[in-house]
């Protein structure tokens, strides 16, 4: 009985004929490879962001947020996410519900269409809106006559962000709903519950983790979207620059501390989203 301490710790059974030292080496090899890869691809760039942000001290770091344009970019990004995420959540729920619970003509077409934004380049996603609502676009003249601006303004940014991020909630929910089936809903109906009650008391709690996860992904992408927003925003400082666009401008102006300060904030926001998700999950398993 020459089980290695590590093997015993994991409580695993040794298969006959298996070399314990070989087993240990292979295991450490795999762990080391993954860690090295993570360090090179993920940790090093992340560290660089913070190192560069604090290169000239905390004062310079904080000072870069005093810039009104930077503050405007942060506000715009948060506002966009605050509008886009709820809208896409409602849409994703409706689409997933329709696909998972009903059989209808054109269902496969709908599924394909939901995937479309993931497949096409973000630049094209932005371009579409310019072609539709831009001055030379289909609705351009009509919009100008009525003094409405969509492209190079807030509505355009929100539309483009919505377009790029709408698959995330639906994509998370469709397989989950299909897998969980209809039985609980049917049970609720036979117990006397109506449609809304069944939805809010049974369906929604049932899929809540998938929903939260989809919203987190949607939010992360909405805050970080660059390509599509870059095309429709027009890069007007203090007005239509979101955080990713603003970072690029600052960087191009050799304002490294400013650029990396905003980048660090964006990174923190992403981390915050993940922390929120973890917290929600953890408290969710505990009972009231």
């Amino acid at each position: 009985m020459a089980a290695s301490p590590a093997g015993a710790l994991a409580g695993e059974d040794r298969r006959p004929g298996q070399h314990s030292w070989m087993h240990t080496i292979v295991r450490w090899l795999f762990i080391a490879t993954s860690l090295a890869f993570l360090a090179a691809v993920l940790l090093a760039p992340l560290a660089t962001v913070f190192v560069m942000a604090f290169a000239k001290g905390v004062d310079a770091y904080l000072h870069s947020f005093a810039d009104p344009d930077t503050a405007a970019a942060i506000r715009l990004t948060l506002l966009t996410a605050a509008v886009v995420v709820p809208v896409n959540t409602v849409f994703g729920l409706a689409a997933a519900w329709a696909i998972a619970k009903f059989e209808f003509r054109g269902k496969s077409v709908l599924i394909t269409l939901i995937d479309l934004p993931l497949a096409i380049s973000p630049v094209i996603s932005g371009m579409v809106f310019v072609l539709l609502f831009g001055l030379h676009g289909w609705f351009g003249v009509w919009l100008q006559e009525h003094d409405l601006s969509i492209v190079f303004a807030l509505p355009g940014i929100m539309l483009a962000t919505m377009f790029v991020t709408f698959p995330y909630v639906a994509r998370e929910l469709i397989p989950l709903m299909q897998q969980l089936g209809n039985d609980e809903e049917e049970a609720a109906i036979t117990l006397g519950a109506g449609g809304w009650m069944t939805f809010f008391r049974v369906t929604l709690p049932k899929v809540r983790w998938g929903l939260v996860y989809g919203m987190v992904l949607c939010n992360a992408r909405a805050m970080g979207e660059f390509g599509a927003v870059s095309v429709v925003s027009g890069h007007i400082r203090g007005l239509t620059n979101t955080m990713p666009l603003h970072i690029e401008i600052l960087y191009n102006e050799y304002n490294f501390v400013g650029a990396f300060a905003v980048a660090s904030l964006l990174t923190l926001l992403a981390a915050l989203t993940l922390i929120v998700k973890t917290l929600v999950e953890r408290t969710g398993y505990r009972r009231r």
């Binding site: 049917e186 049970a187 609720a188 006397g192 709690p205 049932k206």
Partner: peptide, 28 residues
């Protein structure tokens, strides 16, 4: 179905998995 006043028991139980036994029973 909800106005028929029948009780239905499914093969795979179909209990509301996020509710306690008490909440399940008290649902109706």
């Amino acid at each position: 179905a909800r106005k028929r006043g029948v009780g239905l028991v499914f093969q795979n139980y179909a209990l509301f998995r996020h509710m306690t036994v008490a909440e399940n029973i008290e649902f109706a």
